[in-house]
Design a protein around this nucleic acid. Structure first.
Lengths: 330, 330
DNA sequence: CTGAAAGCGCTTACAG
DNA sequence: CTGAAAGCGCTTACAG
């Protein structure tokens, strides 16, 4: 049995309240009492129960991180960023998967609410407005990534997807490509829409017509990229470049090129998005639009802390810039 | 304000206790009462507070996962495995980093204990025996990976590191390599010792003398692999093959080979360990000893559940087999 | 089949 | 500078 407040109080010969005071550094205490209590605490190895405390303070010192899938190489660095700011401040973090599934996402949010987390960081799969009420997370600060939200309880961190999409295409246009296809990512993703718009706008600006049949949606995984690229290249051999919604898709496209005997970048240039680990070590190394994933995690957590400190203040979205990493694949 | 037991009781016109009974599916209830309560629960959107419940039951439905660093590509799949068995059963999981640092590890364990997690899964950096007492996790089930533990409160999942090390070297020997170096990983790692022993034994069995200066320790990260391999190859040009403690180190070695103009596998063969994502997509693809990371996570969580269900029963370690994936690099 | 009381380990006003 | 009482939202024996 771990020691409790009462045990410490007894040992130190003071009241429960006095011990509570020294633990929480509040109120004025006689130095001698204080010292005596400290000794008792050390001897008993006393650690306050966060549970009992939370029951009355309504703060658990925990937060929830809801993301698609930690095995997607995009997320570990984000999680690392979140943890790196959370842990030193005494926050513990619950990790939850949504798998891009709205039902799982709701279940995760419920579960986090059941554990009374102080706040939530989420990569939403869906429109969140309704969810916020439904899930009774309202009143609990929430940071959503890549989805703007209108609520004093929510704030967001946004990636410059539009700009990134444009940069990727602009780069290919500058290299004289005119037949550029796009592996466009998950249909329901707002993020995707911005990237796709960047693609369209860049093409149109250069007077290159947009071919709708060259914009193919699909799950953001390597297998899907391979499949889609394969079909695309077989059906439209004139395509000389592919921009992908993310690196996993781009990697799949590379695979397809290999299999079809099309050399990258000479026969088909490829540009990814995210700059996940190892894509700089493969051959040819992947040209991609870099997102600062670690920074994203840190910023999201910092924003959450800000909301925790000053609840109910509406805050502007944070915009995260992107950067084109020109490597070998395009 | 979320609804409480009392609100539900009031609305349904029954006592608190009755509501508690229907929520926890215990005792016999008149169907009509039961139905009335259920309606009240639904209307109020009542969800029991896990905090309040835990205070009396001593179960929080949470577990802690302590690992080196989620950005090490070995871990995300492990975490996924853990979550995939934990979440459907109603367990939420805290993610903590140790960064291979014993102090951080202890802090993580303390923090988990403060939150009264039901159990812990840990990739220990260190000898755990002492820690177990020190951290007051005793009495709380703990599963340690790759470190056997003598306690009815602890159990372990072990990777066949020795066998893996042997397999890697045996493969190289079969391909006529006789000058094989090893990037041996973190010094304090018991795991490493077994891998290294596999390396030694395989060599000795084939009558190949072990050169101590060819076994070089170091942090299990790519940068370090590059550095160590570089020195090794510069100093001992006769080396024709390198086995690495893990894939990250192997990737670093590949990089070094590239920079030194040594072709892989012709001038220098390389074998990794783990089979992390993407090493099958690089060129040359990496020959490596595969560990079923996802299965590892699942097994660890299953073992933890087993301990939770039957506390205090000493259990045999689970041994996880490994498999040599022969690809292009060796 | 249902309820009133005590208690889990803390903190929060309120006294003195 | 320090303490006694009430209460956070539940469950656990114990009654009836």
């Amino acid at each position: 049995m771990p020691a409790k407040l009462r045990d410490v109080a007894q040992k130190a010969g003071v009241s429960i309240k006095t011990v509570s005071r020294v633990v929480n550094h509040q109120g004025e205490l006689a130095e001698s009492t204080r010292a005596r209590v400290l000794v008792a605490i050390a001897e008993l190895g006393y650690r306050p129960s966060k549970l009992a405390r939370a029951l009355v303070t309504h703060r658990t010192d925990t937060i929830g991180l809801v993301l698609g899938d930690i095995t997607n190489p995009f997320f570990p660095e984000v999680a690392r960023g979140v943890l790196d700011v959370a842990e030193p401040l005494g926050y513990s973090v619950f990790l939850c998967h949504s798998d891009g599934d709205h039902q799982r996402e709701i279940r995760s949010l419920h579960s986090l609410a059941d554990h009374a987390v102080d706040g939530i960081i989420i990569f939403p799969t869906y429109e969140l407005e309704e969810m916020l009420d439904q899930v009774a997370v309202s009143g609990r600060p929430l940071v959503s990534v890549n989805r703007p939200l209108n609520s004093p309880w929510a704030s967001s961190v946004m990636i410059h997807s539009y700009r990134g999409g444009r940069m990727a295409v602009a780069h290919l246009l500058a290299r004289q490509h005119r037949t550029i296809a796009m592996l466009a990512g998950p249909t329901a993703d707002a993020h995707r829409l911005r990237r796709t718009k960047g693609y369209r706008d860049a093409l149109l600006e250069h007077g290159v017509p947009v071919r709708e049949e060259w914009i193919v949606p699909g799950a953001p995984i390597q297998a899907r990229g391979r499949e889609s690229a394969r079909e695309l290249l077989l059906r439209y051999p004139e395509i000389t470049a592919i921009v992908a919604y993310n690196d996993l898709l781009a990697l799949g496209a590379m695979q397809a090129c290999n299999e079809l005997g099309r050399r990258v970048p000479d026969d088909c240039a490829i540009v990814g998005f995210d700059d996940i680990p190892l894509v700089d070590s493969i051959s040819p190394s992947l040209t991609t639009v870099r997102v600062d994933k670690y920074g994203l995690g840190r910023q999201a957590m910092n924003r959450l802390l800000q909301m925790l400190a000053k609840p109910g203040v509406e805050l502007e979205p944070i915009w995260l810039d992107v950067e084109l990493m020109v490597r070998q694949s395009a």
